[in-house]
Design a protein around this nucleic acid. Structure first.
Length: 486
RNA sequence: GGUCGGUUGGCCGAGUGGCUAGGCACUGGUCUGCAAAACCACGUACGGCGGUUCGAAUCCGCCACCGACCUCCA
């Protein structure tokens, strides 16, 4: 392929050619979930977006180290640096140990991700397991003069940092605007400026998640964990940092400031952000209370859902939109995705039944080129899918005898299909329960049905078909017999 | 209020200055005992008003509407 991968860098607001710092190695860090509740459709978006990136980078033979964290401490409920820890609150409400909450929802998150065929990252660090690293980073920032201590808590000095660096470069903000727009909140008297953020917080007496430090018994600030853990596992400078667009400010802006303040240089080369999933045009989010959990999608038990949608339908639905566009949830859209996916996946069976001919009326090289071009253009999965549907159409036409393909091209087409549909898009056939039926049994029943048809006993034939359909077996009558699949 | 982004045919959703994206749905047809599947045919869409251009949905300006971020959020 002569064209190369380009990705949109939020920092430059442009598509840039992807050039790793130390090829063939690629360091990828993505902000993972705060595990205080079930994952919803919104959580599936970054997971699938960066799964697509991870899969594609690996396909391009990069040696990728993919780190995605689990936030289990420090993520406060409310206004910056005040309020209760999300995990601790849940624990209090459920009368559980905070770590029980963390383990419970981490497990469920993994289960959902597995259902969506999202590959596990290489490293999945937890914030609570990296308190020492975070404390060391606080010390570095203090030593460099970009933080101050008040009453056992350490805050990042944004104004000081801004004198020598640009705080706001990622989100396109100016400190004066922040000054003008930041609301003055109660209980923030400790901070020199309202936009300063906590690196370490002294724990209030009722705060159960706390660790000793030279400053106080306390806990780390939310923004710090990603900086500390990405540094630990990917180094002071690494290639790609991803996450949802809503994290751009302040979370990622703070990460840049922290890393730069600690190490004297910026840590991330490419920032990538996936857009939001909306519901009736509004962002789907926990704080808005309009979210549908993945579990609810898979089971269909939510008042907004007409029916259950399989994990692969959800995955395909997300991949049908470009990751930087918002995508609006609706039953119609999900159902359209469901049918489209079925068509795409079923074509595989047809593809493997094809007989090669003397000539090819399809240019497989051209198709492959188009697929790579789509992916290279900032992971344009919707365009890739459009090309794959062109292939599907062609596959059907070959079967109908209206087009032909050479043996060599047929092999290439099979390989292409496997690569893009299964390996890169990560789509897979749904598992169905086949425990009570065997191939032999089904064949036997279908032959009985054929007998019935020959005897014009259509009532029996239809009854058999209905029963088997109920078991998830699809029957297609042909001129001289039948085909079936499950 | 500030910053940024969006507005594409019934629904979803790509996109480039001139060459039908794609999916789903609908309708008609082929096939079929009937279906299903598949195939064929079919839709001249790009928020509004100006401007640039031989030519704009695609570039520029203004307006309208919607959204995101500015507080935790994937």
């Amino acid at each position: 392929m002569d064209n190369k991968l380009r990705i949109y860098n939020s920092l430059s607001r442009k598509k840039e050619f992807f050039e790793p710092i130390n090829p063939p190695y690629v360091g990828l860090y993505v902000c993972g979930p705060t595990v205080y509740g079930d994952a919803h459709l919104g959580h599936a978006r970054p997971a699938i977006t960066f799964d697509l990136l991870y899969r594609y980078l690996k396909h391009l033979d990069y040696k990728v180290r993919y780190v995605r964290n689990i936030t289990d401490v420090g993520h406060l409920e409310n206004d910056a640096d005040e309020g209760e820890d999300k995990i601790a609150k849940k624990a209090r409400l459920e009368q559980l140990e905070p770590m029980e909450v963390v383990e419970y929802y981490t497990h469920r998150y993994h289960r959902n991700m597995e259902a969506l065929n999202v590959l596990r990252p290489n490293i999945e660090p937890k914030a609570s397991g990296h308190i020492i690293e975070q404390q060391l980073m606080v010390e570095e920032i203090l030593e460099h003069g970009f933080a101050y201590e008040v009453n056992g808590s350490i805050y990042f000095d944004v104004e000081k940092y801004n004198q020598s660096h640009h705080y706001g470069k990622l989100s396109g903000r100016k400190i004066e605007e922040l000054q003008a727009n930041t609301r003055r909140l109660e209980g923030q008297d400790e901070k020199r400026n309202p936009f300063d953020f906590a690196l370490w917080k002294k724990a209030a007496p009722e705060h159960i998640m706390r660790w000793p430090s030279k400053w106080s018994n306390g806990f780390p600030g939310w923004h710090l964990e990603c900086s500390a853990m990405s540094t630990k596992y990917l180094g002071e400078q690494f290639d790609i940092h991803g996450g949802g667009m809503d994290l751009l400010f302040p979370h990622h802006e703070c990460e840049i400031a922290q890393s730069t303040a600690a190490h004297g240089k910026e840590s991330v080369k490419y920032w990538m952000h996936n857009n939001m999933i909306t519901i009736n045009g509004q962002k789907m989010g926990k704080s808005l209370g309009n979210f549908i959990t993945l579990e609810e999608f898979f089971r269909g038990n939510h008042k907004l859902l007409d029916k259950a949608y399989s994990p692969m339908t959800v995955r395909f639905f997300i991949l049908q939109a470009h990751y930087r566009s918002t995508v609006d949830f609706s039953n119609d859209a999900l159902q359209a995705a469901e049918k489209g996916l079925e068509r795409l996946l079923k074509a595989k069976n047809t593809l493997h039944q094809l007989k090669p001919g003397k000539e090819s009326s399809l240019n497989v090289d051209e198709l492959a080129k188009n697929c790579y071009q789509a992916m290279n253009d900032d992971l344009n999965s919707p365009v890739l899918i459009a090309h794959l549907f062109e292939a599907v159409r062609f596959i059907h036409l070959i079967k109908e005898g209206k087009e032909t393909i050479r043996a060599k091209d047929l092999e290439q087409l099979k390989e292409l299909y496997q690569t893009f549909v299964y390996d890169i898009l990560g789509l897979q056939q749904e598992e169905t329960d086949r425990s009570e039926l065997t191939t032999e049994l089904i064949e036997m029943i279908l032959h009985l049905r054929l007998e019935a048809k020959k005897n014009k006993d259509f009532a029996t034939a239809d009854k058999i078909r209905d029963e088997l359909t109920r078991k998830g077996i699809i029957i297609k009558d042909t001129k001289d017999g039948f085909e079936w699949e499950w």
